[in-house]
């Protein structure tokens, strides 16, 4: 299995642990990644309030690069905002026949052209669908027995395009969590919005959402995420959201990496802002039990 890899801007800076753990876990699972040369920002969630054409042209530039430099490969995207921005280009072009011409007129400044050939895939879709829980289970050397894990999917991996999971009641992470020996926490907040960039513009409003999610996770040992913005909102504002006890928040591939027995340099758990001593203790117990 081989994919064109679009890390996105966050994974180069504040979400380095998501980038490293994704690459290491995929390597262990036999997946080859070819990073898209010269990729640029997709506009994140800031571009649509600024320009409707740029909303499509920025991700289309990366899709055009993928068509030229990585022909035939699906684009693998770990960030949910990047995923939706790239996915949306093809969807919008299918609905409006004038759009491809406008996009290509803009891309023409760089001699690029977009033909709509690239399939855009979220990391979770690839892990849960293409690779699957059996292949994941085969790599487990440290079963995470007794660990209760709440899967948090956020918004833009699920909505508005429901391609690999139920956008109202997402479950796609649960077979992966079970494959690691851990227990999936039952809750209905997996697809609830974390507030996204309201954390910067209206923190008081975003904190209400974060508090509701963290409160609902009471009883879980950790929350796992598949988006750098969800991760940041859930891990960095716990004291301001009046959470009584801190709860650990990990990226999904970090959890896989722990069960695969990857090194500290491969999981980069020390980069996370919320990892409790209780979780570290449970992980040590899992290690002892597997030894």
């Amino acid at each position: 299995m081989k994919y064109a890899y679009y890390p996105g801007c966050s994974l180069g800076t504040s979400a380095e642990e998501y980038d490293v753990s994704s690459r290491e876990v995929l390597k262990r699972l036999g997946v080859e990644l070819s990073e898209i040369p010269d990729w640029t920002c997709c506009g994140a969630s800031a571009v649509e309030p600024v320009s409707s054409l740029l909303t499509l042209a920025l991700p289309a530039r990366n899709l055009a690069l993928t068509e030229r430099e990585c022909p035939g490969l699906d684009m693998l995207v770990p960030c949910s905002a990047c995923y939706l921005n790239h996915l949306r280009v093809g969807r919008e072009c299918a609905a409006d026949r004038a759009l491809p011409g406008r996009i290509n007129e803009a891309l023409g400044t760089e001699g690029l052209s977009y033909a709509g050939k690239v399939r855009v895939r979220h990391l979770l879709d690839v892990l849960a669908g293409d690779i699957g829980p059996e292949a994941v289970a085969a790599q487990v050397s440290r079963r995470l027995e007794g660990l209760i894990v709440a899967s948090y999917y956020g918004c833009q991996a699920l909505r508005p395009y429901a391609l690999f999971d139920d956008p109202e009641r997402p479950r796609s992470m649960e077979p992966l969590i079970s494959a690691l020996g851990a227990t999936a926490f039952r809750w209905d907040m997996g697809g609830r919005c974390c507030g996204a960039s309201l954390m910067a513009t209206r923190r008081d409003v975003a904190l209400v959402s974060v508090a509701a999610i963290l409160d609902a996770a009471a009883g879980a040992d950790a929350i796992v995420t598949v988006c750098p913005m969800c991760q940041m909102n859930l891990e960095a504002y716990q004291s301001q959201a009046h959470q009584a006890d801190t709860i650990s928040v990990l990226y999904l591939p970090q959890l896989l990496g722990l069960a695969f027995g990857l090194s500290d340099e491969q999981t980069l758990l020390d980069k996370n802002l919320a990892v409790t001593d209780a979780l570290k203790g449970k992980l040590r117990a899992c290690e002892t039990a597997s030894a």
Binding site: C9, S10, G12, T13, S14, T40, C41, G43, A44, A46, V47, P49, V50, S51, L54, L58, S197, A200, T201
Partner: peptide, 18 residues
């Protein structure tokens, strides 16, 4: 301004510099 400053940074740097 939040959105415009973000996109201004993207325009200059190609990849957002948080």
């Amino acid at each position: 301004l939040f959105y415009q400053e973000f996109m201004h940074n993207v325009e200059q740097n190609g990849r957002i510099q948080e």
